[in-house]
Design a protein around this nucleic acid. Structure first.
Lengths: 228, 228
DNA sequence: CGGAACGTTGACTGTCATCAATCTCTGTGG
DNA sequence: CCACAGAGATTGATGACAGTCAACGTTCCG
């Protein structure tokens, strides 16, 4: 159930609050992070340019500064209060050497994250703004949604600006798009940052990558039923 | 020098011609491919929609169907005549278990490829069409360029449409952009699909991600000098 | 209550996609 | 060797979508 539980004795737990940044260039040797709970955002901050969110990290996701992208302005920030495990890269590699099964788990995990990045490329490259937002809502519903009376309910852990930067849209444009979705009844807003999807099939019909999203995110949330 | 040479005795060499597709869903068990020479393109072909190139694979890059993205219409095609090594996934995992150093090499390689995907997300998300094309030309120059009299020379192994699909641009728009670059003297065309970059610094100044491109692609080509 | 941050909406602008016409290159056959 | 056909590349005209700027509303702080 918990593929990385074996790391626990060697890991340093780290708690971060919402909007807190996680130090990456820690000086003394590189570090591996394993997300235990919460949601983190990998972002690039090019000078004098819009921030771009590169990926959203969910529990069990792994981030490693050396394995990660070597560009200057990359940072890891918390979208919600989160718990991480921190391991020195050297320790991590020793543990991998000891346990072949762990290495295989690691490969699968990293491959899964890579696949999500590739899907995100396809999203940015070939979908319209409206399709991108519906795709993202489907992703969140799969990860965070809980079945409820009027449909699937979930909180949106990212701010408006975060979502805009993730989907490569302007915050203004994003606001327009989400107003359109609400007007069409595809989503219902119930309180600040809380969303209900009344008709799952109809939402999925709005984007050509619904199947891929279900394949990549469907088995992680508390509601594998949505994939069916 | 050749981190994956140990795979040779267990691998099946596969040769592909330009534009040939590599079968992915091989039925009996999953397969791992290691690129030995040439350039391959990972593409997604959503129904009734534009093709999107997800990544460009260079020698030593690894592709594995299970590790790769699980969406329906993903295919691997050859941009140039190429040679691959094919291994059953099971064999690959056994070899990894035998040799801890190999596992570490594999992790580094996959991490490098993931970093390239993240950089591509940043490209699509935050760069203009013109910046995307110059970034791609820098990438090709780093990988394929050879120093010559008037600057750095290289052949472009992708067709116009391939490049457009990779950069998420329309072929028409791409043509306009490349005409603009030629008019500004940033690149010089010498024959079909052959390019000379007369002024490397000036080309790099056109994109904010030049440093990242050099970090990710600079140590692979025959001209590490460009990174300096 | 006031202020700041964030979100929404409208008017305008710019970039890129689309469609269509023309041009260039390449290979083929007379 | 030249003419021709076909594919691919270029270029122009036009339109749609998203970005920008500005004004207004809302929420959440002190």
């Amino acid at each position: 159930m918990d593929p990385f539980a074996v790391l626990r004795p060697r890991a340093t737990p780290v708690r971060v609050r919402r909007n807190q940044q996680v130090a990456l260039a820690s000086g003394q040797g590189e570090t591996v992070y394993v997300v235990r709970s919460g949601i983190l955002l990998l972002q690039s901050l090019p000078p004098a340019r819009h921030r771009q969110l590169l990926s959203v990290l969910y529990p069990n996701d792994i981030f490693c500064a050396t394995y990660g992208p070597p560009f200057a302005a990359v940072a890891l920030g918390a979208a919600t209060a989160s718990e991480l495990w921190r391991l020195p890269e050297r320790t991590f590699e020793l543990l991998l050497g000891d346990d072949a099964g762990l290495g295989q788990q690691l490969n699968r995990q990293l491959a899964d994250q890579h696949a999500r990045s590739l899907l995100h490329i396809a999203m940015l490259g070939s979908l319209s703004g409206e399709e991108r937002l519906t795709s993202f809502l489907i992703e969140l519903a799969l990860r965070l949604g809980i079945p409820s009376a009027g449909g699937t309910t979930f909180d949106i852990p990212l701010s408006r600006n975060d979502i805009a930067d993730y989907l490569a849209l302007n915050p203004d444009t994003l606001s327009r798009i989400s107003s359109r979705l609400k007007a069409r009844g595809l989503v219902v807003q119930t309180g600040r940052g809380r969303i209900v999807v009344p008709n799952w099939e109809e939402l999925c019909a709005q984007t050509p990558i619904a199947d891929s999203l279900i394949a990549l995110h469907g088995e992680h949330g508390p509601n594998a039923n949505l994939g069916a």
